[in-house]
Write a protein that binds this DNA or RNA. Structure first.
Lengths: 291, 291
DNA sequence: CATAATATCTGACTTTAGTCAGATAAATTA
DNA sequence: TAATTTATCTGACTAAAGTCAGATATTATG
């Protein structure tokens, strides 16, 4: 006898709906209705355009207006016309608003920390939560163009290198490989994309150009928790789109047979195997794609 | 650089709060407000005592009364006085109510199935969800005394045997071990406990008596997803309590050194190692505890 | 048996969330 | 420049959820 998978999903839903109130609706407990707290929170997290907040929270314009007015009356936010378009308004926290926002943040963080420390195997719990969050949030994954030296990007690269050293029989040492110059992965020469899921980086890809008509795909990585969602293909497509924008005519990449799922992806999306085109010690397989 | 664990928990919370609406609040979409739908759902899942539903859903008595009246007016439920206490009321579904409840169930099940089939690795996703659900629902785990031949119990025993065959160097075959008679694990001779978390079995323990003053602890098992929550100890304590109720003076158990965490638990909770007391081929370590 | 406690119900409220039809002002387009 | 579109605001509403003070009937207790 095995347990019904559907019953397991529904048990998860029940567990989550009865506890997440305590986890995330910590909005409550500071004497403010959920609606106002959500708006304050959105502004605190950097959303300033009123229309963007409205879109993000799915609110009616009338309701939004009243919620903003309420927060303004409480002295937590102030709104000013948008500098480029006086129809739009921009909201930002006042001093009092920032301290109130920090109080919400502290509460949320304390609850999150408490939840982790109550568990005997927090690392395993986190991995499971990452997997579930990626599956639930798959529709909200956004690709951001980023400087490869940014924290998010460096995190992805670090995980990528760690994975290569786990999977290559003789390990992997970045310093022996040709680490692309950051400037080659920034426009106008190239680009670097980070996939963000609810604020956390879960994948990346680099487009390394040299100013000519040929560029290279580098550092394609997807977090273990986000595999199986079609993210690698999405990253590759986005990189190709940018390459076309940069008038690049052909792409190349090098890879290793210890990464069969990557090769599978390349072969399934229009890439052809070619001769070795560099003397990097790690790759053993080389691909090209005409744009 | 590693990701902040707290940021990861909070990302999970965001992912869950924005999606679980779609997963569990399928209450909506059938033209009934959430409150009524929750009550209908509770009754459909077997809660009949009005006070119990009120407690479970955390509702005010006035609100509860009105919700019940509303469902009654729609012909979905009927309420009768409790046979033992005419102050209390008992609610149950009418024919129309049952069909409405089934419609909600079908919706929920379809959504759960859809979520699973959209994922490339459903088994891994389910394991992650189990782990998270057990951690979130740890406060709602209840121990139920059950007939060991019941489905839930048989599921736990099957998982227990499977785990033994994975962990013992030479595997495990129930038929070679002395499988306790079910009657020895049912009152008045003994008992069998199943730990239930939001409706799913996640652990068990058997108290095998022979009518005398000595009984044995058998089949202590906790699902991998529920380890680290202190459940094994809780099961053991409950089994000891029942043993005392049955006037048992001492408990014994046999175990194997391939299960070190179990031995650790016994040693930490008042058990002492003793000489072999049976000729079962699998155990190599034996414990006793005076009650 | 009188009194207290308990479970539910009723009526009169409040708060929160949300809808919808204009009003207003600014920006865009023809 | 006139007409249209866009972003926000205001007023007037509704629905849902929840609170609270009794009313009522029943059961438990001294």
């Amino acid at each position: 006898m095995t347990l019904d998978p559907i019953a397991r999903v529904r048990r998860f839903n029940r567990a989550v709906t009865s506890e997440v109130g305590a986890l995330d609706t910590s909005f409550l407990g500071r004497g403010r209705p959920l609606g106002s707290a959500r708006v304050l929170n959105a502004i605190g997290h950097g959303q300033s355009d009123v229309a963007a907040i409205r879109e993000y929270l799915g609110l009616d314009s009338g309701l939004m207006s009243r919620l903003l007015r309420g927060l303004e009356d409480d002295g937590l936010i102030e709104t000013i016309p948008h500098p480029d378009d006086a129809r739009r308004r921009v909201a930002r926290l006042t001093k009092a608003g920032r301290s109130e926002f920090r109080a919400y943040e502290a509460l949320s963080n304390a609850q999150a920390k408490d939840f982790l420390t109550r568990h005997a195997r927090p690392e395993e719990l986190l991995r499971a939560m990452d997997l579930v969050a990626s599956a639930l949030g798959r529709g909200r994954i956004v690709l951001e163009e980023a400087d490869p030296r940014r924290d998010d990007a460096r995190y992805c690269l670090g995980e990528y290198y760690a994975e290569l050293s786990r999977r290559f029989a003789n390990g992997f040492d970045v310093s022996l490989s040709r680490d692309p110059e950051a400037v080659d992965m920034i426009r106008p020469r190239g680009a670097f994309l980070v996939a963000m899921s609810d604020g956390l980086p879960i994948g990346c890809v680099g487009l390394k150009g040299g100013g000519g008509e040929i560029a290279e795909i580098k550092r394609l990585w997807v977090a273990p928790s986000a595999r199986g969602l079609g993210l690698a293909r999405r990253l590759m497509n986005a990189a190709e789109d940018i390459a076309r924008e940069l008038s690049i005519k052909a792409l190349r990449l090098d890879t290793n047979s210890a990464l069969p799922e990557a090769q599978q992806l390349y072969r399934n999306s229009g890439w052809n195997e070619i001769e070795r085109f560099n003397d990097d010690p790690y790759p053993d397989t080389f691909f090209e794609k005409q744009l």
